[in-house]
Write a protein that binds this DNA or RNA. Sequence first.
DNA 1: TATTGTTATACTCTATAACTATA
DNA 2: TATAGTTATAGAGTATAACAATA
Lengths: 148, 148
Amino acid sequence: MAHEMTDLNLRQFAGYNLKRVYLLVHADLMKSLEPLGLRTMTFSALNVVAENPNLTQSQLAQTLKIERSGVVVLVDELENTDLISRNRVEGDRRSYALHTTPEGAALLAKANQVVHAHEDKIFSDLSQNERDTLRGLLGRIDTPKTQT
Amino acid sequence: MAHEMTDLNLRQFAGYNLKRVYLLVHADLMKSLEPLGLRTMTFSALNVVAENPNLTQSQLAQTLKIERSGVVVLVDELENTDLISRNRVEGDRRSYALHTTPEGAALLAKANQVVHAHEDKIFSDLSQNERDTLRGLLGRIDTPKTQT
DNA sequence: TATTGTTATACTCTATAACTATA
DNA sequence: TATAGTTATAGAGTATAACAATA
């Protein structure tokens, strides 16, 4: 076997490290959620619906920063597994009010625990303090600018 | 317009912030590299080839953590634009020794500047110190375990 | 038998655009 | 005219598996 090759020049870029870690985290998160029948995006969607009862699909799209067409698939999946439901809105028959079912809320509680355990594992090389720092720094970069 | 919806529960997870920031960074990086005729992965590949002259495609795959079949496409693209070249290796006619052309080295120098400017912009809400902290924390999570 | 590079294929994720029904 | 949801489609990006040449 030849020498180990290096990526030192790329390592100076935060973005390169960011991508490597993201892929690592995403792969492990996927495996962690799989036993619950969730994917990373259905987990996120379920989370946002639980936090914002009766939001519409368009609002969910905006919050998750994805297109409305993508939300349809997520909501379909969550509705087919009885985790959330689409409810008609009085006054506007175009949109749905989404909310979690009792099963959805119960599964979400479990999923949140699973994801916490996943992060404990994947970030185990960092102290709790460092993890908070990381989360804080990342949160400041992706600041949702308030729309007018 | 209705109230702003929240993703506060997801925000407690480092992974969620990580993904949001990664998508943000990646989209801007792509736009930044486009005028140079590079994609994020060809930029990375060019970088690693320049840093490790005469490495093989398999070694490049290992360094970038992608499959060998994916490297073929990247190297094809870089070779077709005369940025790197595949050279036969004496002693093993299965593999190629990759190295940058003068044009490749020149373009890489320009690209590195572009990417620095891109990061200055995208991470402008962080101080230089905080950016270093971020990069350091990320680097510690994705630690390439030394293979036996 | 194992490895390098290659090809063909498929899969996931997501965006775009066109459509419908409502407003 | 504009908006919510939907559908169909296409494009990245990447992985898997099978193959030829070479070791």
